[in-house]
């Protein structure tokens, strides 16, 4: 009887009784933790709201008819809902067509980029070869140099494409590769796509963190180099590779620079989106007349719908993958 009393000494006492016994420590702790979580909640709510608000704004303005835009009494909710704006944007951006093109090019290019980057990263992480430091400095250069610096020269390269003048000698003229997706596919296969230096760096960090003994065991058991790579290293690296793939996919999806330069014969959504206003003004003009100027509010409404349509597939994709995403990035670790 007395034993149980001593063990559960504070169990049936009130909070204030226990607080008195602990000389105020309990109250202090409780207040501190509540204050902390209130401040945290306020801070997070404010910042989250700041990120979400433009998206909400876009969604609601998208459904507004044009006259609601100039009505100062309409703040967030449209007075009457219309889908005409969406139809117009879909027509201006050649919607189903450009989206399908964007989908397959982004998929193809990001897969190619990730494959080549994984191979290169593994090479950098595990092998010693001559001039390794120099080549890695080149990877860092690749991250740092803005692609706009070399834009003109690259363009010239692909319009008059030739490998060591072989085509010129055999057929008498150079090949214009700009009309197909092949040049960009080649660039992706050789790690020269969008932000590929970054993926090499990330994957190298990951591979460096894997214990070497795993591969040594595989070698001793008679695995070849490629076999070890595909059977031992790749399965473990999958989450990291997947997050690299996601980055590549998202960035490729919204990219204008490479799409405009190398995929100009396909209608890519991001490119269409960037010229939506000028196309709108051309479309509104009567045939044979010069283009009219679209009012500011209207053009921004169309842009915001376009941006929304561009984002929604990515956001859905992101919702499904964000757990793996964060987890795998945690595994990339902080080891230099």
């Amino acid at each position: 009887m007395s034993k149980s009393e001593t063990v559960f000494i504070g169990k049936n006492k009130s909070f204030w009784e226990r607080n008195r016994r602990s000389e105020g420590y309990l109250l202090k702790r409780k207040v501190r933790s509540i204050a902390g979580s209130v401040i945290r909640a306020l801070l997070l709510f404010g910042l989250c709201f700041m990120i979400i608000q433009p998206i909400l704004m876009r969604i609601t303005t998208g459904f507004m008819p044009e006259k609601d835009l100039y009505d100062t009494t309409v703040v967030m909710m449209p007075r009457s809902v219309t889908l005409d704006n969406y139809n117009l944007v879909f027509r201006l951006t050649r919607f189903p067509n450009s989206m399908v093109n964007t989908l397959w090019t982004s998929l193809l290019m990001s897969v190619l980029q990730v494959i080549s980057c994984t191979l290169v990263a593994y090479g950098f992480a595990r092998y010693e070869f001559p001039l390794k430091k120099l080549w890695f400095a080149c990877v860092v250069m690749l991250i740092i140099i803005p692609p706009t610096t070399i834009q003109t020269a690259l363009y010239m390269n692909f319009v008059n494409f030739d490998i060591f003048e072989i085509f010129k000698v055999t057929t008498g003229k150079t090949v214009n590769l700009r009309t197909s997706f092949i040049p960009y596919a080649i660039m992706c296969l050789t790690c020269m796509g969008l932000k590929n230096g970054l993926y090499i760096y990330m994957l190298r960090q990951y591979f460096k963190g894997v214990p070497k003994s795993l591969e040594e065991a595989a070698y001793i058991d008679g695995c070849g180099t490629m076999h070890t790579f595909t059977k031992i290293m790749l399965p473990d690296a999958m989450p990291t590779i997947a997050s690299c793939f996601l980055f590549a996919f998202v960035w490729q999806w919204t990219d204008v620079f490479y799409s405009r330069n190398f995929l100009s014969s396909y209608s890519i959504y991001a490119v269409e989106l960037s010229s939506i206003v000028s196309r709108m003004s051309r479309e509104l003009a009567p045939p044979g007349q010069p283009a009219v100027i679209v009012s500011n509010g209207r053009s921004q409404q169309l842009i915001s719908i376009g941006v929304l349509v561009c984002c929604i597939p990515l956001i859905i994709l992101y919702c499904f993958t964000q757990k793996t995403f964060v987890k795998s990035l945690a595994m990339t670790g902080s080891k230099e």
């Binding site: 080549s116 191979l119 593994y122 080549w135 790690c191």
Partner: peptide, 17 residues
């Protein structure tokens, strides 16, 4: 072997960068 792994990068860097 290591050089084979990073060969794509070397080619790409020399040609396109």
């Amino acid at each position: 072997t290591g050089t084979w792994f990073i060969l794509p990068f070397i080619i790409g860097f020399l040609l396109f960068m």
